[in-house]
Protein backbone atom coordinates (compact mmCIF):
# COMPACT_ATOMS: atom_id res chain seq x y z
CA UNK A 1 0.00 0.00 0.00
CA UNK A 2 2.89 2.26 0.83
CA UNK A 3 4.43 1.79 -2.59
CA UNK A 4 1.11 2.40 -4.25
CA UNK A 5 0.72 5.65 -2.40
CA UNK A 6 4.21 6.80 -3.34
CA UNK A 7 3.45 6.10 -6.97
CA UNK A 8 0.26 8.01 -6.59
CA UNK A 9 1.99 11.02 -5.11
CA UNK A 10 4.57 10.91 -7.91
CA UNK A 11 1.82 10.73 -10.48
CA UNK A 12 0.04 13.66 -8.89
CA UNK A 13 3.27 15.62 -9.00
CA UNK A 14 3.12 15.35 -12.75
CA UNK A 15 -0.42 16.60 -12.59
CA UNK A 16 -3.67 15.23 -13.86
CA UNK A 17 -2.97 16.19 -17.45
CA UNK A 18 0.42 14.57 -17.17
CA UNK A 19 -1.31 11.45 -15.95
CA UNK A 20 -3.53 11.36 -18.98
CA UNK A 21 -0.46 12.03 -21.07
CA UNK A 22 1.31 8.98 -19.64
CA UNK A 23 -1.50 6.70 -20.66
CA UNK A 24 -1.50 8.29 -24.05
CA UNK A 25 2.21 7.64 -24.60
CA UNK A 26 1.83 3.97 -23.81
CA UNK A 27 -0.91 3.52 -26.34
CA UNK A 28 0.02 6.01 -28.95
CA UNK A 29 2.16 3.73 -31.11
CA UNK A 30 0.67 3.88 -34.57
CA UNK A 31 -2.75 4.78 -33.25
CA UNK A 32 -3.60 8.34 -34.08
CA UNK A 33 -6.90 10.13 -33.51
CA UNK A 34 -8.81 10.10 -30.28
CA UNK A 35 -5.92 9.33 -27.90
CA UNK A 36 -5.82 11.68 -24.95
CA UNK A 37 -9.27 13.08 -25.57
CA UNK A 38 -12.07 13.23 -23.02
CA UNK A 39 -15.56 11.88 -23.46
CA UNK A 40 -18.25 13.43 -21.30
CA UNK A 41 -21.01 10.97 -20.56
CA UNK A 42 -24.16 11.95 -18.74
CA UNK A 43 -25.93 8.98 -17.30
CA UNK A 44 -28.41 7.98 -14.67
CA UNK A 45 -27.75 7.42 -11.03
CA UNK A 46 -28.69 3.74 -11.29
CA UNK A 47 -25.87 2.80 -13.69
CA UNK A 48 -23.42 4.81 -11.65
CA UNK A 49 -24.47 3.89 -8.14
CA UNK A 50 -24.52 0.16 -8.86
CA UNK A 51 -20.85 0.40 -9.90
CA UNK A 52 -21.51 -0.87 -13.43
CA UNK A 53 -20.16 2.24 -15.09
CA UNK A 54 -16.66 2.00 -13.61
CA UNK A 55 -16.58 -1.63 -14.68
CA UNK A 56 -17.47 -0.66 -18.25
CA UNK A 57 -15.42 2.51 -18.59
CA UNK A 58 -12.02 1.32 -17.35
CA UNK A 59 -11.44 -1.09 -20.29
CA UNK A 60 -12.72 1.51 -22.76
CA UNK A 61 -10.29 4.09 -21.40
CA UNK A 62 -7.40 1.64 -21.70
CA UNK A 63 -8.42 0.54 -25.17
CA UNK A 64 -8.51 4.05 -26.65
CA UNK A 65 -6.21 5.92 -24.30
CA UNK A 66 -8.98 8.36 -23.44
CA UNK A 67 -10.73 9.60 -20.34
CA UNK A 68 -14.42 9.17 -19.69
CA UNK A 69 -15.96 11.82 -17.46
CA UNK A 70 -19.17 10.30 -16.17
CA UNK A 71 -21.74 12.64 -14.66
CA UNK A 72 -24.64 10.89 -12.99
CA UNK A 73 -27.99 12.64 -12.73
CA UNK A 74 -31.60 11.71 -13.11
CA UNK A 75 -32.59 10.86 -16.68
CA UNK A 76 -34.30 14.23 -17.18
CA UNK A 77 -31.28 16.21 -15.97
CA UNK A 78 -28.86 14.01 -17.94
CA UNK A 79 -30.78 14.74 -21.16
CA UNK A 80 -30.99 18.44 -20.34
CA UNK A 81 -27.21 18.63 -19.94
CA UNK A 82 -26.86 17.00 -23.36
CA UNK A 83 -29.39 19.45 -24.84
CA UNK A 84 -27.08 22.26 -23.81
CA UNK A 85 -24.21 20.55 -25.59
CA UNK A 86 -22.37 19.96 -22.33
CA UNK A 87 -22.04 16.22 -22.83
CA UNK A 88 -21.13 14.03 -25.77
CA UNK A 89 -23.17 10.93 -25.13
CA UNK A 90 -26.14 10.04 -22.91
CA UNK A 91 -27.08 6.70 -21.38
CA UNK A 92 -30.53 6.81 -19.78
CA UNK A 93 -33.65 4.79 -19.07
CA UNK A 94 -36.86 6.56 -19.98
CA UNK A 95 -37.89 5.80 -23.53
CA UNK A 96 -40.47 8.57 -23.71
CA UNK A 97 -37.90 11.20 -22.73
CA UNK A 98 -35.32 9.66 -25.08
CA UNK A 99 -37.83 9.84 -27.91
CA UNK A 100 -38.47 13.54 -27.23
CA UNK A 101 -34.73 14.08 -27.25
CA UNK A 102 -34.43 12.43 -30.67
CA UNK A 103 -37.50 14.18 -32.12
CA UNK A 104 -36.05 17.54 -31.13
CA UNK A 105 -32.94 16.64 -33.11
CA UNK A 106 -30.51 16.53 -30.19
CA UNK A 107 -29.86 12.80 -30.17
CA UNK A 108 -28.68 10.55 -32.99
CA UNK A 109 -27.84 6.88 -33.41
CA UNK A 110 -29.83 5.53 -30.52
CA UNK A 111 -29.15 1.94 -29.48
CA UNK A 112 -30.73 -0.36 -26.94
CA UNK A 113 -28.05 -1.47 -24.47
CA UNK A 114 -29.53 -3.53 -21.69
CA UNK A 115 -32.48 -3.86 -19.40
CA UNK A 116 -33.44 -4.77 -15.91
CA UNK A 117 -36.76 -4.20 -14.27
CA UNK A 118 -38.64 -2.22 -11.67
CA UNK A 119 -40.15 -3.75 -8.59
CA UNK A 120 -42.66 -2.42 -6.11
CA UNK A 121 -41.22 -2.76 -2.64
CA UNK A 122 -42.79 -2.27 0.74
CA UNK A 123 -42.78 -3.46 4.35
CA UNK A 124 -42.95 -7.17 5.03
CA UNK A 125 -46.33 -7.00 6.79
CA UNK A 126 -47.75 -5.28 3.68
CA UNK A 127 -50.61 -3.22 5.17
CA UNK A 128 -52.06 -2.47 1.72
CA UNK A 129 -52.11 -6.15 0.80
CA UNK A 130 -50.52 -5.92 -2.64
CA UNK A 131 -48.15 -8.88 -2.30
CA UNK A 132 -48.13 -11.14 -5.33
CA UNK A 133 -50.39 -8.95 -7.47
CA UNK A 134 -49.92 -9.66 -11.16
CA UNK A 135 -50.50 -6.10 -12.24
CA UNK A 136 -48.43 -3.10 -11.24
CA UNK A 137 -51.29 -0.69 -11.89
CA UNK A 138 -53.64 -2.73 -9.71
CA UNK A 139 -51.06 -2.63 -6.92
CA UNK A 140 -50.68 1.14 -7.21
CA UNK A 141 -54.45 1.64 -7.32
CA UNK A 142 -54.71 -0.38 -4.11
CA UNK A 143 -51.97 1.69 -2.45
CA UNK A 144 -53.86 4.86 -3.39
CA UNK A 145 -57.13 3.44 -2.13
CA UNK A 146 -55.66 2.38 1.20
CA UNK A 147 -53.74 5.68 1.41
CA UNK A 148 -50.61 3.98 2.72
CA UNK A 149 -47.34 5.91 2.52
CA UNK A 150 -45.82 5.93 -0.96
CA UNK A 151 -42.44 7.61 -1.44
CA UNK A 152 -41.88 9.02 -4.91
CA UNK A 153 -38.55 10.01 -6.45
CA UNK A 154 -40.16 13.20 -7.72
CA UNK A 155 -37.00 14.14 -9.62
CA UNK A 156 -37.86 13.64 -13.30
CA UNK A 157 -35.61 10.58 -13.36
CA UNK A 158 -36.27 7.46 -15.41
CA UNK A 159 -37.78 5.75 -12.39
CA UNK A 160 -39.98 8.75 -11.65
CA UNK A 161 -41.11 8.87 -15.29
CA UNK A 162 -42.05 5.18 -15.10
CA UNK A 163 -43.89 5.73 -11.82
CA UNK A 164 -45.95 8.59 -13.26
CA UNK A 165 -46.79 6.50 -16.33
CA UNK A 166 -48.01 3.71 -14.07
CA UNK A 167 -50.18 6.06 -11.98
CA UNK A 168 -51.60 7.38 -15.20
CA UNK A 169 -52.41 3.86 -16.40
CA UNK A 170 -53.96 3.06 -13.03
CA UNK A 171 -56.21 6.07 -13.44
CA UNK A 172 -55.03 7.61 -10.20
CA UNK A 173 -53.85 11.16 -9.69
CA UNK A 174 -51.62 10.66 -6.67
CA UNK A 175 -51.77 13.32 -3.99
CA UNK A 176 -52.44 13.79 -0.33
CA UNK A 177 -50.46 13.11 2.80
CA UNK A 178 -49.69 9.52 1.92
CA UNK A 179 -47.87 10.48 -1.30
CA UNK A 180 -44.42 11.98 -0.70
CA UNK A 181 -42.42 13.57 -3.46
CA UNK A 182 -38.83 13.68 -2.29
CA UNK A 183 -36.59 14.76 -5.17
CA UNK A 184 -33.95 12.33 -3.92
CA UNK A 185 -31.92 9.52 -5.45
CA UNK A 186 -33.06 5.91 -5.37
CA UNK A 187 -30.88 4.81 -2.46
CA UNK A 188 -32.11 7.65 -0.30
CA UNK A 189 -35.72 7.04 -1.28
CA UNK A 190 -35.33 3.37 -0.31
CA UNK A 191 -34.00 4.49 3.06
CA UNK A 192 -36.87 6.90 3.60
CA UNK A 193 -39.35 4.26 2.54
CA UNK A 194 -37.81 1.79 4.94
CA UNK A 195 -37.91 4.22 7.83
CA UNK A 196 -41.56 5.04 7.25
CA UNK A 197 -42.60 1.48 6.43
CA UNK A 198 -43.95 2.78 3.15
CA UNK A 199 -44.00 1.63 -0.44
CA UNK A 200 -41.98 2.73 -3.43
CA UNK A 201 -41.07 1.85 -7.00
CA UNK A 202 -37.40 0.94 -7.35
CA UNK A 203 -35.15 -0.39 -10.05
CA UNK A 204 -34.14 -3.91 -9.12
CA UNK A 205 -30.41 -3.16 -9.20
CA UNK A 206 -30.46 -0.40 -6.59
CA UNK A 207 -32.90 -2.36 -4.42
CA UNK A 208 -30.63 -5.43 -4.49
CA UNK A 209 -27.53 -3.41 -3.67
CA UNK A 210 -29.31 -1.79 -0.68
CA UNK A 211 -31.28 -4.82 0.47
CA UNK A 212 -28.92 -5.71 3.31
CA UNK A 213 -29.74 -2.47 5.14
CA UNK A 214 -33.51 -2.51 4.96
CA UNK A 215 -36.60 -4.46 5.86
CA UNK A 216 -38.25 -3.77 2.54
CA UNK A 217 -39.29 -6.76 0.46
CA UNK A 218 -40.36 -7.08 -3.16
CA UNK A 219 -44.15 -7.21 -3.26
CA UNK A 220 -44.72 -6.93 -6.99
CA UNK A 221 -42.07 -8.50 -9.20
CA UNK A 222 -40.84 -7.12 -12.50
CA UNK A 223 -40.65 -9.11 -15.73
CA UNK A 224 -37.26 -10.66 -14.90
CA UNK A 225 -38.92 -12.70 -12.18
CA UNK A 226 -42.13 -13.27 -14.10
CA UNK A 227 -43.88 -9.99 -13.26
CA UNK A 228 -45.78 -7.76 -15.69
CA UNK A 229 -44.00 -6.29 -18.73
CA UNK A 230 -45.14 -2.82 -17.68
CA UNK A 231 -42.32 -2.90 -15.12
CA UNK A 232 -39.54 -3.47 -17.62
CA UNK A 233 -36.65 -1.00 -17.48
CA UNK A 234 -34.72 -0.70 -20.73
CA UNK A 235 -31.58 1.43 -21.04
CA UNK A 236 -30.66 3.27 -24.23
CA UNK A 237 -27.65 5.24 -25.41
CA UNK A 238 -27.50 8.14 -27.84
CA UNK A 239 -24.81 10.38 -29.29
CA UNK A 240 -25.43 14.12 -29.11
CA UNK A 241 -26.09 15.39 -32.63
CA UNK A 242 -22.90 17.11 -33.89
CA UNK A 243 -24.99 19.08 -36.38
CA UNK A 244 -26.71 20.81 -33.46
CA UNK A 245 -23.72 21.12 -31.14
CA UNK A 246 -20.55 21.26 -33.17
CA UNK A 247 -18.35 21.20 -30.07
CA UNK A 248 -19.31 17.64 -29.08
CA UNK A 249 -16.85 14.80 -29.49
CA UNK A 250 -18.93 12.80 -31.91
CA UNK A 251 -16.22 10.36 -33.03
CA UNK A 252 -15.48 9.31 -29.49
CA UNK A 253 -19.21 9.10 -28.66
CA UNK A 254 -19.68 6.65 -31.48
CA UNK A 255 -16.62 4.68 -30.40
CA UNK A 256 -18.16 4.46 -26.93
CA UNK A 257 -21.56 3.41 -28.25
CA UNK A 258 -19.77 0.86 -30.41
CA UNK A 259 -17.89 -0.48 -27.42
CA UNK A 260 -20.95 -0.66 -25.14
CA UNK A 261 -22.97 -2.53 -27.76
CA UNK A 262 -20.07 -4.79 -28.80
CA UNK A 263 -19.85 -8.44 -27.73
CA UNK A 264 -17.14 -7.44 -25.25
CA UNK A 265 -19.14 -4.60 -23.69
CA UNK A 266 -22.28 -6.69 -23.58
CA UNK A 267 -20.41 -9.53 -21.92
CA UNK A 268 -19.13 -7.18 -19.23
CA UNK A 269 -22.69 -6.05 -18.55
CA UNK A 270 -23.89 -9.66 -18.31
CA UNK A 271 -21.05 -10.60 -15.98
CA UNK A 272 -21.48 -7.67 -13.60
CA UNK A 273 -22.95 -8.73 -10.30
CA UNK A 274 -23.62 -7.13 -6.94
CA UNK A 275 -24.09 -9.31 -3.88
CA UNK A 276 -23.91 -12.31 -6.18
CA UNK A 277 -26.83 -11.26 -8.38
CA UNK A 278 -26.80 -10.11 -11.97
CA UNK A 279 -28.13 -6.54 -12.16
CA UNK A 280 -28.38 -5.80 -15.89
CA UNK A 281 -29.24 -7.95 -18.87
CA UNK A 282 -27.61 -7.05 -22.21
CA UNK A 283 -29.88 -6.66 -25.21
CA UNK A 284 -27.83 -4.88 -27.88
CA UNK A 285 -26.87 -8.03 -29.74
CA UNK A 286 -29.45 -9.91 -31.70
CA UNK A 287 -29.46 -11.95 -34.90
CA UNK A 288 -32.84 -10.53 -35.79
CA UNK A 289 -33.01 -6.92 -36.84
CA UNK A 290 -34.55 -4.54 -34.33
CA UNK A 291 -35.17 -1.30 -36.19
CA UNK A 292 -37.29 0.27 -33.48
CA UNK A 293 -34.27 0.99 -31.31
CA UNK A 294 -33.05 3.61 -33.80
CA UNK A 295 -36.18 5.76 -33.94
CA UNK A 296 -38.80 7.09 -31.55
CA UNK A 297 -41.33 4.45 -30.56
CA UNK A 298 -44.14 4.17 -33.06
CA UNK A 299 -42.33 6.29 -35.63
CA UNK A 300 -42.97 5.47 -39.24
CA UNK A 301 -41.72 7.05 -42.42
CA UNK A 302 -45.29 7.58 -43.67
CA UNK A 303 -46.31 9.57 -40.65
CA UNK A 304 -45.41 13.11 -41.61
CA UNK A 305 -46.47 14.56 -38.24
CA UNK A 306 -43.89 12.47 -36.45
CA UNK A 307 -41.17 13.81 -38.67
CA UNK A 308 -41.92 17.42 -37.95
Amino acid sequence: MKIQRREFVAALGVGTTGLAGCTAFGQNDGEAGVTGETLTLTTTTSTYDTGLLDELNAPFQDMYGVTVDAISKGTGAALETARNGDSDVVMVHARSLEDDFMREGYGVNRRDIMFNDFVIVGPEDDPAGIAGMESATEALATIAEEEVTFVSRGDNSGTHTKELALWDEAGVDPGGDWYQETGQGMGQVLNMTNQQSGYTLSDRGTYLSRRADSNLVILVQGPIEGGPDSLSNPYGIMAVNPAVHENVNYDLSMAYIGYITSPEGQERIAEYTANGEQLFFPEALSEDPDFEQYVPEGWSADDSDERA
Partner: peptide, 10 residues
Protein backbone atom coordinates in the same frame (compact mmCIF):
# COMPACT_ATOMS: atom_id res chain seq x y z
CA UNK B 1 -18.23 20.52 -11.51
CA UNK B 2 -20.47 17.51 -12.01
CA UNK B 3 -18.95 15.39 -9.21
CA UNK B 4 -16.73 13.48 -11.64
CA UNK B 5 -14.41 10.69 -10.56
CA UNK B 6 -12.68 8.48 -13.09
CA UNK B 7 -13.22 4.76 -13.46
CA UNK B 8 -9.81 4.32 -11.82
CA UNK B 9 -11.16 5.92 -8.65
CA UNK B 10 -9.34 9.23 -9.00
Amino acid sequence: GGNIAGANGI
